[in-house]
Design a protein around this nucleic acid. Structure first.
Lengths: 209, 209
DNA sequence: TCCCTTCTAGAACGAACGCTCTATCCAGTG
DNA sequence: CACTGGATAGAGCGTTCGTTCTAGAAGGGA
C-alpha cells in the first residue's frame, strides 16, 4: 500500500480511500446532482478533501478527463447494483419491478436529488465533449447488456431479449427522470408494472397477442 | 402592434418576432442543448440579437426567470406537436409509434443534439432552483394529460389510461435520452413497438393476460 | 413643445471559472 | 547523507459569469 501511510487524519467521511478515489467519487456524486457545467473543479477538490494540485496530478486532462472517470465510476456502481437485483429474483419480470423499487428508494432517500449518475453529466455536454458522450453511451450499452443476458437466461428469444433490453433501460431511465422532476415515485411504479407485463408477454410458452 | 415598428433590420434569422420572444426562443434552444449552467445570459442575448439590457428588462428575475420562461416555451411547443400527432392517427397505439418516429426524426435532424427541451434544463438544476423544477414538473404533467385524454378517447379505462400515460411519457423521455446519448434511434424504435403493444393490451375487448 | 413610459445599449463590478505554475513534503534508493 | 519521483499545497493567471447601472432612443399624450 503506497499512499495509505500518507493519509493525514485518516478520518473524514471518506474512510481509508486513496486521494484519487476520493476525487472520482466526489466528482461523480456532484456531477450527478449539478451536471457537468454546474460542478467546479475547486468544489470537487474541497469536498473530496484534496487540493487542486492533486486533482490535476491525477487527471492531467483536466475537467473532461475527470468527468469521464466520474461517469465510468457511476456506471460500475449502478451495474453492480443492477446485477445484484437481477440475480436476486427468480422471475425476470419481478426482477425488473425490483429495479424500479430500488430506484424509487434511492431517489426518495436523497430527497429526489440523486438521479442517474450518467444522465446529468452527459446531457449537459451533448456533443461538446466527445469523450464524455462516448463514456455515457458505453454505460447505457453495458447496463443494456446486463438486462439482455438476464432475459436470455430466462429463456427469451434473442431478438425479443435484445429489443426488450432497450426498452427496459430506456423506461427505467425515463421513469427515474420523471420521478425526480415530479418528486413522486408513481412514474417508477407504473413503469415497473408495465415492463413486467411486457416481459411476461415474451416468456417462452406465454400467450402471444 | 406596439413594438414591431421598432424592429431594426427586421431581417436576421428571427423573422418579425418581438425582442422578448426572440430571447425566450433562443434561451429555450440553447438550454436544450447546453443545460442551465452551460448557457450564459450573454450568449443568449447575442444569439437572440438582443442586448443585456433587454434581457434584464423583460426578465428582472434574471437567469432563473428566463429559464422558467424557456421551459414553458418548450413545453408548449412539444405539447402542440404531441397533440397534432396523437390526433393524426385513428389508432392510439399507432399514434404513439408516430411520436417515437417524430422524436427520432428531430434528433437525427439536429445531429443528436436537440433532445427534450425540458430535461436538460431541469436536470442540471435538480432542487437548486425550485421555480425551474416546478415548471418542469408541470410540463411533464401537461404532456401526460394529453396522452391520458387520447387513451380515454380510445376507450381505455380511467385507471389503465392513467398508468399508461405515465409509462408512455416516461418511456418516450427515456428512449429519446438513450437515443441521443447513443446517437442511434434503436431505443426509440423499440420503445414505439413496446408501447404500442402495451396500449393494445388495454384496448376495450382485448384479451387480458 | 415637453414629459413619461417603454425599450435598447453596453460599460463595469465582484465573484467564480478552468487551469498553470512553483514550492514543499515524504518514502524509497544508493 | 543526497537524490529522485510521486503526491500535496495553494497563489495567481486570464477569462467568463450573472448582475447592476447609467445613458440614450422611440412613440403617445399634454
Amino acid at each position: 500500500m503506497k499512499t495509505s501511510a500518507r493519509q493525514r487524519g485518516a478520518a473524514g467521511p471518506h474512510g481509508a480511500l486513496g486521494t484519487r478515489d476520493r476525487i472520482v467519487r466526489t466528482a461523480s456524486r456532484l456531477m450527478q446532482r449539478q451536471g457537468y457545467d454546474g460542478t467546479g473543479i475547486k468544489q470537487i477538490s474541497q469536498e473530496a478533501e484534496a487540493t487542486l494540485g492533486s486533482v490535476y496530478h491525477f487527471f492531467p486532462g483536466g475537467k473532461q478527463e475527470l468527468a469521464v472517470a466520474a461517469i465510468r465510476h457511476g456506471e460500475k456502481e449502478f451495474a453492480d447494483e443492477l446485477r445484484e437485483i437481477l440475480d436476486g429474483e427468480d422471475d425476470p419480470a419481478e426482477a425488473v419491478v425490483a429495479c424500479t423499487r430500488r430506484l424509487a428508494e434511492g431517489l426518495r432517500a436523497s430527497d429526489w436529488v440523486d438521479g442517474c449518475p450518467v444522465t446529468a453529466t452527459a446531457l449537459g455536454t451533448a456533443g461538446r465533449v466527445p469523450d464524455v458522450q462516448r463514456a455515457a453511451a458505453e454505460a447505457f450499452a453495458h447496463w443494456r447488456r446486463l438486462v439482455f443476458e438476464r432475459l436470455r437466461r430466462a429463456g427469451l428469444a434473442e431478438d425479443d431479449a435484445h429489443d426488450l433490453a432497450h426498452t427496459v433501460i430506456s423506461t427505467l431511465e425515463g421513469a427515474e427522470l420523471a420521478a425526480q422532476v415530479s418528486q413522486d415515485d408513481r412514474p417508477l411504479r407504473a413503469a415497473g408494472r408495465h415492463l413486467a407485463r411486457l416481459i411476461d408477454l415474451h416468456r417462452p410458452g406465454a400467450a402471444r397477442s
